[in-house]
Design a protein around this nucleic acid. Sequence first.
DNA 1: GCCGTTTTCGGCCCGACTGTTTTCAGTCG
Length: 583
Amino acid sequence: MEGKRISNNEVVKILEEILAAMEIKSANSFRIRAYQNAVSILDNLTVSIYDLWENKKLQEIPGVGPGIAAHLNELFSTGQVAEFEQAKEDLPEGMFEFLELRGVGAKRAFKLASAFKINSRENARERLLEAGEAGKIRNLEGFGEKTEEKIIDAIKEQKKSKNEKQRMLLTHAEQIVERIKEHMVKCKEVKEVVACGSFRRRNPTVGDLDIPISTTNPEKAIKHFLKFDEILEVVNQGEKKATVILKNDIQVDIYMSTPEAFGSMLQYFTGSKQHNILLRTYALSKGMSLSEYGIKKGGKLKEYANEEDFYKELGLPCIVPELRNGNYEIEAAKENKFPKLITPEDIKGDIHVHTELSDGVNTIEEMVEKAKALGYEYVGITDHAPSVSSRGMGTVLKMVSDTRKKIEEINESQKDIKVLFGYEVNILVDETLGLPDDILKDLDIVIAGIHAAFDQDKGKITARYLAALNNPYVDVLSHPAGRMINERDGTDPDWRKVFDAARESNKILEINAQPDRLDLPDDLIKEAIEWGVKLIINSDAHALEQMDFMKYGVFNARRGWAESKDIVNTLPYKEFVKELGIG
DNA sequence: GCCGTTTTCGGCCCGACTGTTTTCAGTCG
């Protein structure tokens, strides 16, 4: 199928505009909800909607039925949707530029654009800003001085962060959460502080922080929270919740709960939204209604101090946060068919570690000591391979033999840990590898990865991966999706071909644990496992402390439903080397 | 418009906060 490739973000934006149009025209509220539901699912999809369309799998997306699928089909085939264009025809076009402003929804956007006759998208926000600064917004019915001020702020805020606000990395969020916790425990009435939301689900990136607080004195706890010295601005505060913006531009929402009802609070704010919607729908079918305060049964509210009891009431096992993504977890829970997810303690070694011999900062000895401290049975020293073309074969051969000698010495001098020797070699544009087979064949480990020319088309990227997988000396494909979170999208090979080739050649795909890579991504991990592909989690550390990144790789693997049997570096040394065909 | 553990027809998630109102609409999570 040949069509117009439109990104997920663009698709979501188009649907959000249609949603706004429907709301203004008071379309059937259930139809609106169906669209909202579909949009929220599409927005959280990590696979390309366009690709799903190409493979005729649109209707496999939950929330997308024949109607929306037909519209998307038209969108991808022709670049627009006639019905959508029609629905937007008699609306002032400028309003669609207002939807992204904080505190402005469909109704206000429409009123504003209509009142000031802002009929085109061009300069729409600037014109609204002008109207606001001239004090004209406050005179509109339903608006007032404060709303005017908020709209002005929202436009300025948008201008400031022209590119949509980036979500922070999980590791960054962890540090902020730690500081908030440290502050909150100083309040005696605070019993528990748990950061929920995407943070607790171990999403690779976190937007806002949602933090339920278990307390015997909500008033005092909120007051105490507002004294946190990193707060820049209090957006709102009530008796049960408060919203603030921190100096680093991160929004934090706190919610007060009694210890007796803390379980439902945790459940509710851990989400995901989609998980909760599905869970509520399921509960409803059993005559129960869920909220952050508990479960209502026959009009009576019952509270839950912990999440286990909450899920138990629904007849379900407690679903681990990493799986609460609204995919298949509730189905699995109903049948009690959960994988026994891998844990950080299962990891027995790390075979993707760089040293000062390439772009790392520490020596081989230092990295080995750190691996020992982590309790590993083995560690692989796998620097970037020296380039034959720039150094010449003679120099490269000497570097390889020197490094090998050093590693042999380390292995002879101690028995606590086995050190393996290998390289991370580039998969070059011409589909060859960065080192000749003659050198590769004597290495313990060969990790092949793409480090340049990521933006080749699907066919070429796929061919490079297949060539690497067909090399008999390659063991592992590093960071296969090639993404750098917040910096660049991944490469986009034909994953089925890559998975097939990996399985057939008994090669291993890496789950790179660098917080800004987490590559493979979780959805591809799940797919790879289903296709029978073996995986390994590596830190790709370039410094001592980066070896601690392993846990992020494990979190990511858990989000991809991985068990320890799916991850080869959970194997003890003897079985691991057998798996890799070493020795 | 979507979807199925009472359903292929007839339902569809819930509550807090703000600002503008004087009983509530709009927005957000």
